[in-house]
């Protein structure tokens, strides 16, 4: 455990807290992509299947359960709970996620660390996480202007990815035998997806002003 990894996990948790606060306190899921949240739920449920047989630390196991619980709760609220379910707009949030899930499943079957079922599922979850934010980014793009809490949510997720990237660099130079090509590749792609958002986030938040983020 290093500081980058820890802060990365904390900003990941922060992103869940921001999103849960937004949809429970604000009673609205407007601007939030249910598609992205469903993808995250699939990602966590498939990657953390090993909760049943792998134990690395209490910290890890606890956070795995937290991530599955939070993403499931978010999907449940937006899909089934009133009044939030009536604020979700399926016409706006219509990214065809089958085109993300399909190729990631094929990639998971073909490119993995070891030819076992769990390694295939695990690789699938890594690939899917890399692109899971796309429906959310497309939704923001369509809306043009992004509500503050939503922009903080995406920023917290982006920070989590950036910090994990630094964690990998740190581990590569401080540990022997630390090689994770699949994770590094997918993680770099994933972090890259946030670069454009961060540019606009910085533009609208600089000078301490709390203006909504405007996307072209």
């Amino acid at each position: 455990m290093n500081i980058f990894r820890f802060l990365g996990d904390m900003s990941h948790i922060l992103s869940f807290v921001i999103l849960l606060l937004k949809i429970t306190q604000g009673k609205s899921a407007a601007g939030i992509s249910l598609r992205t949240q469903e993808l995250y739920m699939i990602v966590f449920c498939s990657r953390y299947l090993d909760l049943f047989w792998n134990f690395s630390s209490l910290y890890n196991s606890f956070l795995k359960v937290v991530f599955i619980a939070c993403s499931s709760a978010i999907v449940y609220i937006i899909r089934f709970k009133s009044p939030q379910k009536d604020t979700w707009n399926p016409e706006l949030d219509n990214f065809p996620i089958q085109y993300l899930i399909g190729p990631c499943a094929v990639a998971g079957l073909l490119i993995n660390q070891d030819w076992t079922p769990f390694e295939m599922i695990w690789a699938f979850s890594i690939y899917l996480e890399a692109v899971a934010i796309l429906p959310q980014l497309f939704l923001l793009q369509k809306q043009g202007e992004v509500e503050n809490l939503t922009s903080h949510y995406v920023a917290a997720l982006g920070a989590y990815r950036g910090l994990y990237l630094m964690n990998w660099v740190y581990r590569y130079f401080t540990e022997d035998d630390y090689l994770q090509r699949i994770v590094w590749f997918a993680g770099t792609v994933q972090t890259g997806l946030y670069i454009d958002f961060f540019y606009h986030y910085y533009q609208s938040k600089r000078g301490g002003l709390s203006r909504p983020v405007k996307l072209p």
Binding site: D9, H12, D50, S56, N60, Q113, D114, N167, L179
Partner: peptide
């Protein structure tokens, strides 16, 4: 033999 990375990240 391929070395499997330990799954100690989230």
């Amino acid at each position: 033999e391929m070395l499997l990375a330990e799954k100690d990240e989230l």
